[in-house]
């Protein structure tokens, strides 16, 4: 007997795909924004900081609604995206990934920014005196030294994405096989009379995934710390 039913398998795969792409696509931006916030001073920094942290403080349903207003089929950018790139985001798994990445973004930025703040600027100075321009300095000194922060941020973001509910259901609804990730499927089963056992099974799966991500993050962090200290 198989461990997962085909439906559960589908839910799991979809959740992983949504979380994976959500995190991968927002990672470069998270690094960039973390660099801007940690290293640069510019007018509007406070506003950028606020916008980045918005998903942490406003109800997820607000974020979902905002996404709908912008990327929905009748939204600001939605029709344009469809016309130019033949991409439709609303009510697809891509939309779920977008919602997940927006919600995970502040967590990733915070983790990366923290490691940037802890990074010894003197090492970057030393690299510059050795003839390393901004690009070489970043690739060979900054990036390797903030790698623990990036990995921790990524895994945190991944775990957050797996659990995303409010923004997702508002933006892309709850469509089996397309946007129905683990929490959404659980929600459906809880709403359905007699669905308790299914909900319980999915809950266990969720917990295992989340704990797994945390354990991996912890292990990676330890290993990197041992290497760099």
């Amino acid at each position: 007997m198989e461990f997962f039913s085909p439906v559960e398998y589908e839910i799991l795969l979809l959740s992983l795909r949504v979380a994976f792409w959500g995190v991968i696509c927002s990672l470069p931006f998270a690094i960039l924004v973390a660099l801007l916030l940690a290293r640069c001073s510019f007018p509007g920094k406070f506003i950028l900081n606020t916008i980045v942290h918005l998903p942490l403080v406003v109800p997820p349903v607000v974020i979902g609604y905002l996404l709908l207003l912008v990327f929905g089929n009748n939204g600001v950018l939605g029709p344009w995206l469809f016309e130019v790139f033949q991409i439709s985001i609303a009510f697809t798994w891509k939309g779920a990934a977008l919602a997940a990445s927006v919600m995970a973004f502040p967590l990733m930025v915070r983790a990366i920014r923290l490691s940037l703040d802890l990074l010894d600027v003197e090492l970057e100075e030393a690299a510059a005196t050795l003839g390393a321009g901004p690009f070489k300095k970043f690739i060979s000194v900054t990036l390797p030294l903030i790698l623990p922060g990036i990995i921790v941020g990524t895994l945190l973001g991944f775990a957050r994405s797996l659990g995303e509910f409010g923004a997702t259901i508002t933006f892309v609804s709850n469509i089996p096989g397309e946007t129905q990730t683990l929490p959404l499927a659980m929600f459906k089963y809880i709403q359905t009379p007699g669905g308790d056992f299914q909900a319980l099974r999915l809950m266990t799966l969720s917990v295992i995934l989340a704990v797994g991500a945390l354990i991996i993050s912890e292990l990676v962090e330890r290993k990197l710390k041992a290497r760099n200290l």
Partner: peptide, 20 residues
């Protein structure tokens, strides 16, 4: 001229070696 174009070797108080 930016630091990396000056061709000046600098030995700092703390050695500032790259730990990685």
């Amino acid at each position: 001229l930016p630091v990396y174009r000056r061709k000046i070797g600098f030995v700092f108080q703390g050695a500032r070696l790259f730990p990685h």
